[in-house]
């Protein structure tokens, strides 16, 4: 039995908003990274669901690319958070404020 695509869209919108909420409220850089992952995975849910809806594979293939890129992005991000910790002795995003925003 196929689930209606609308439900997937609602799910992905909810996941996306959860991620966005996390980004706006959390000051811990690692939680920020997790929130970005949520947002990217919301896009993946959409892509796979629409891929099934349209019966073509484009969306699924793109979802694979997105996953690989998300992993690469986290690798670079954790590297930056590591040097952040070495310089500021914390992973609080708001601590790194020697220049003004």
């Amino acid at each position: 039995m196929a689930v209606d695509t609308t439900y997937y869209l609602i799910l992905s919108a909810a996941v996306f908003c959860t991620g966005l909420f996390g980004i706006l409220t959390r000051r811990n850089a690692l939680l920020f990274l997790m929130s970005v992952e949520l947002m990217l995975n919301a896009a993946n849910i959409n892509l796979v669901a629409f891929s099934q809806y349209y019966g073509n594979l484009t969306g699924q293939v793109f979802a694979l690319f997105t996953m690989a890129l998300a992993a690469a992005e986290v690798a670079v991000g954790i590297g930056i958070i590591l040097v952040l910790y070495r310089n500021f002795e914390d992973v609080d995003v708001a601590d790194a404020a020697t220049m003004r925003w």
Binding site: S12, I23, V36, M39, A42, A43, N44, F50, F62, E73
Partner: peptide, 17 residues
């Protein structure tokens, strides 16, 4: 950058949809 690329990816998924 990470935030905006996530927004971009979600936008692309909606265009695909």
């Amino acid at each position: 950058g990470a935030l905006s690329s996530a927004v971009f990816a979600y936008g692309v998924s909606l265009v695909y949809g």
